[in-house]
């Protein structure tokens, strides 16, 4: 049912055991799963669902309720724009449209076609004094401008080629 390497199998078994021994918390289980896979793969949910005899809908109900969970694989590079209030009044909307344009993202898409870059929005990173803030591959950039963001994105796409 689940074809994975022994290494990964050990990992999901560990998650399962932690769930059984702990308080039996589905959120923590999904957090651990996402930590392992980078997202919540459908067949992994299926596996847990059968092992634990909990309907898949419970898992997906939770995974879709909380913004933290991703049901699709994410890009190799992650760009996160803060759209909290302080960043909003300092022009985060412009940054967001710049990024969507540069990455050619349409509608609700958040990952480029080639799976290279995921662009996400988040509410307040707690660094409002540096607004507007963008995180590019875990590095925080304060006082971001549209030009600088476009340049950063270009340097990522170029590095790939």
């Amino acid at each position: 049912m689940l074809e994975v390497s022994p290494e990964i199998e050990k990992k999901i078994n560990d998650i399962l055991n932690k769930y059984i021994e702990g308080e039996g918390n589905v959120i923590s289980l999904l957090q651990d799963a996402q930590e392992t896979f980078g997202y919540i793969p459908e067949n992994v949910v299926d596996w847990f669902s059968k092992k634990l005899d909990i309907p898949e809908s419970r898992f997906f109900g939770i995974a879709t309720f909380y913004a933290q969970f991703h049901l699709k694989p994410r890009g190799k590079n992650i760009i996160t724009a803060c759209c909290g209030t302080a960043c909003h009044v300092k022009g985060s909307e412009k940054l967001i449209s710049t990024a969507s344009r540069e990455l050619n993202l349409k509608g609700d898409e958040d990952t480029t076609e080639d799976g290279e870059i995921t662009f996400e929005k988040v509410a307040c990173l707690g660094t409002c004094s540096m607004a507007p803030v963008v995180i590019i591959n875990k590095k925080m950039h304060g006082k971001m401008t549209t030009e600088k963001l476009a340049r950063e994105i270009k340097s990522i796409t170029k590095a790939k080629k």
Partner: peptide
Amino acid sequence: DEGDPGAFMDRA
């Protein structure tokens, strides 16, 4: 949980 999107007191 500090949900207010423009505040960071609790974090600090």
